[in-house]
Design a protein around this nucleic acid. Sequence first.
DNA 1: CATGAATGAGGTTTCATTCAT
DNA 2: AATGAATGAAACCTCATTCAT
Lengths: 208, 208, 208, 208
Amino acid sequence: MPANKKPTRAQQKAMRPLQILEAAFEEFIAKGFSATRVEDVAERVGVTKGTIYVYFETKEKLFESMVEYVSEPFKESFRGFVTKTDDPFEALESFLSFLFAQIVNERRMRELFRLVVSEGRTFPDMIDRHHDTFMEPVITRIDQIVDAGVARGIFRQKSAELPKVIMAPIIGTVVFRLIFDDRRPLDSDEVLSTHIDLLMNGLKQAMA
Amino acid sequence: MPANKKPTRAQQKAMRPLQILEAAFEEFIAKGFSATRVEDVAERVGVTKGTIYVYFETKEKLFESMVEYVSEPFKESFRGFVTKTDDPFEALESFLSFLFAQIVNERRMRELFRLVVSEGRTFPDMIDRHHDTFMEPVITRIDQIVDAGVARGIFRQKSAELPKVIMAPIIGTVVFRLIFDDRRPLDSDEVLSTHIDLLMNGLKQAMA
Amino acid sequence: MPANKKPTRAQQKAMRPLQILEAAFEEFIAKGFSATRVEDVAERVGVTKGTIYVYFETKEKLFESMVEYVSEPFKESFRGFVTKTDDPFEALESFLSFLFAQIVNERRMRELFRLVVSEGRTFPDMIDRHHDTFMEPVITRIDQIVDAGVARGIFRQKSAELPKVIMAPIIGTVVFRLIFDDRRPLDSDEVLSTHIDLLMNGLKQAMA
Amino acid sequence: MPANKKPTRAQQKAMRPLQILEAAFEEFIAKGFSATRVEDVAERVGVTKGTIYVYFETKEKLFESMVEYVSEPFKESFRGFVTKTDDPFEALESFLSFLFAQIVNERRMRELFRLVVSEGRTFPDMIDRHHDTFMEPVITRIDQIVDAGVARGIFRQKSAELPKVIMAPIIGTVVFRLIFDDRRPLDSDEVLSTHIDLLMNGLKQAMA
DNA sequence: CATGAATGAGGTTTCATTCAT
DNA sequence: AATGAATGAAACCTCATTCAT
């Protein structure tokens, strides 16, 4: 069963948009929307400029489709994430581990953040969608876990911004890695466990 | 003591570079390096393209000078920051308050982060300088405070990444504000006090 | 006698070129040669670009074939036109009525004129053919009628350019309709009868 | 008093738009709007593409400005045209001579007609303006002359479309020259005098 | 110092045409 | 016969930069 050297035309056609989106991702995160040339994307795929326009109407549409494309895996795995425990500590730890794995340690997600920060002003829709499908659900989930902990007298009365304070180190770590990871790598697992450790103590302490 | 209605021509002349840097800042943060036109900067100042080139050799140099320019105030105030207490809790709280005031609540600093994230790949020097004059000193200072606390048996044994975990929420909050503040404003003071509160409890707990 | 619901595939096939020529006509008169896309023509027929090239080698050839195609009906009817009278007045009136019916009041012929005017410089052959198969025969026929009238002492001695002067209002009316008919419709019948009336009097008068 | 070899920069600047409009006219009439390249216009002026865009925002705007520019002389001379006689025959003859001189025998005006015919569908404004500033005033003037003649019992009762019938040969002759003049030149003066002669007889006849 | 006309390289997009299926 | 993916040449337009005034 030898590997298929040449894909059929039908296979080729089905793959093209994906190939282009992959290439677009790499180019856009490397140079930003404006400084990326459509031709760069084409070259990376191994086709000519015109081919890009067979699949995407404009550079803007290509960018937006690409953002959609790289956002999908997280949305998918978030939908599939279920807490298996009733213990608020374990629930929080479990969810934070999940977020670290899916966001901090996923290059795609880290770079997606770069784009949200850098191109958000030019693509407000992206911000809205990112908020609605990412930030809002995540914050809400944290909120629920904290609420449950508070209701059961395990966590202390929460502050209004507590969910964001719990979330902030994740965003911070993402950005830290985006900026400095090349020269100052950071031990993500250590950061995660430290963050959790701090949180567990910080939240529990109230009960003392 | 007459009000200075019109600056003299000499004063005007001396201000030109500053005006240009201010204008450049606004344009570059709004559209990014690549999408900003030198003419946009000129228009904002009220001069013509050519004038920009009287003071700055290239668009790149203008950008770099602008980053330098908006970075200065933080460096200045950081140099002037002294801890007046020996108590590690107070020292940490004091320093975090300082960072919130100087970074999270300073539009210039927030937007500077946007540029570091978005243009860092194109301007590696900026990243290096930002690391050396901003991140490194800040982390070091946190480290010192934590070390002091540990040495005096007030804080528990610290993790290697603890300073970054303490710093991360600040970066995270900056980025949160950069991205969502327009539609989901966040109560910075509440975030600060919650963060400090959590930290105090989290760190102290070790002693229990 | 069942209605022919669907043409057979063979019939379909035979019709393709005609359908394409029809579509090409509509597109070319609407946007001109250069601004018309081969794909527009294809879409109008309901096929894809490639199909056009099955029947026509290039866009130019398509255009030329189309001009040929829409010119045919006039040539046909002109060949079939016979003067049934000996009276020069009646002959002239009859021929002018024929020309109005076939040219001024025929959308195809009017639009053909638009193409001759607009694309003539790019397609000199079209001009030549239009001259040889249209203008020249028509002018000649007018000339013959006038000659006959002069020979029989009914019309006055003609001017060298008289046939063109007789013809010019027809072209003028065509162009008037091409340009302004949408907002300033013109009563073709009234124009025809006025033109004839004027001519009859103008030509006859000489004899007085 | 030697000729000024090099115009000053100020002179140059004042002339540029005119030079460009002249060049645009020649290019647009030769190839039509769509097939004309901005670079062709630039080359004809002896500057580069970019220079065109210093003076005209888009190719469309350039086209429209050019139409405006070449229309002006006729509007000017039409405003200056006054009939010096009370005799309707003379008035009509005088006006038709004027129109032949200004329209039929003016290359600019002839070619303007080509553009109206060929680009009218793409530039409806041009049609409107051409109607309002050219066709309508001319037709109105003819109408007035004819009315005066009828009122004084010199011309017969006019037909509703008579002014257009009087005007049509002029448009027809223009178009004839546009299309065929290269290979079948036409004697404009002869056409004019024949047209006038025919008209005079045709109109006067009523009195008999 | 300041201007702004001019440049020209380069970017996005279009489209006639080809060709494997 | 018909398709439509792919090409690549070329068009429109932009903009950093220069330089004579």
